[in-house]
Write a protein that binds this DNA or RNA. Sequence first.
DNA 1: CCAATTGAGGAACGTTCGTTCTTGACTGAT
DNA 2: ATCAGTCAAGAACGAACGTTCCTCAATTGG
Lengths: 166, 166
Amino acid sequence: MGRTRTFDEDEVVRAAATLFGGRAYDGVSVDDLVTHLGVHRNSLYKTFGSKRGLYLVALRRHLAHDVRPLVDALGSAPDAASALRLITSADLGLLLLAAVERAPADTEVAAEVAAALDAVDQAVADALGVPADLAAALTSAALGILLRGNPHGVGTALAHRLDPLG
Amino acid sequence: MGRTRTFDEDEVVRAAATLFGGRAYDGVSVDDLVTHLGVHRNSLYKTFGSKRGLYLVALRRHLAHDVRPLVDALGSAPDAASALRLITSADLGLLLLAAVERAPADTEVAAEVAAALDAVDQAVADALGVPADLAAALTSAALGILLRGNPHGVGTALAHRLDPLG
DNA sequence: CCAATTGAGGAACGTTCGTTCTTGACTGAT
DNA sequence: ATCAGTCAAGAACGAACGTTCCTCAATTGG
């Protein structure tokens, strides 16, 4: 039944997530994808429908493979400092970029991002036993630290001050 | 000596900053700029050299008109909660977008953004008398809250918990 | 071994991008 | 009144974009 594939679909999605996590959506061209992903144009469109289709799949993979484990780990965070450390040491580049750049222009992306962040908030709230708004604040703070590349372990500095919160 | 301008240069730059603050750099076309700014293509290129030239001027205007006043106000912030409130209620859309989306691809943007954030960090550190890394953490936290649109006054929730810091 | 199906390969599509060119209208100084 | 200089107006440029089409190679079921 037809020729066998020479590319691994999950591998392609993973590489796409890396590319999209590194620069803006419009900064990654289909040529870039074809070149770096080891998949042919035709196969890309046959498999994912469009550039946006591949982006959505890559985003969902990022959420499933990078954010979900973080949420699970947060479930057993003993205090705010630990939670902050967990988030700030996670690889959330694509989520961040999606939130700032794509969500305002793509409601489907916005929904995925909001759901993912809500899950993180919930995990923080449950683990620390703090109100929802404070949990959201902690998540936001961690994202802000990630945004700046967590210079000089800045996350740790805040974490120490937040310990009494737990 | 020549025809008089029919557009106000500062008005154009201000409108450009608004546009660039609302969506990604590549999401704002020159056509968009020409349409919304009341300046003609030719004048745009004559005045700013290129789309990127206009972007840089708009970014610098944003830093001078929106970030600088924030830094000044932070100078007399009595405690961490006040500082956080000041930052989270500022209009920093373009700075945020520039930091996440443009800085990785444009070293000049990266330099402007880094300098601006450093100035905020410094103001926070001076006003509160806290170490540099903690000040940077506070700035980062505020940026993270802005990133999520400060839902339900989340900034305030964190601010109350940070009061003992001041 | 042939027919049917699916992927690979690459050229080509129309559109939109940022930028430039050409033309004409307006202004101030000579 | 004229001339040089600036701006407005919009057509037009080549390049790059996302997408589609066509042809050939490879694989499986009859």
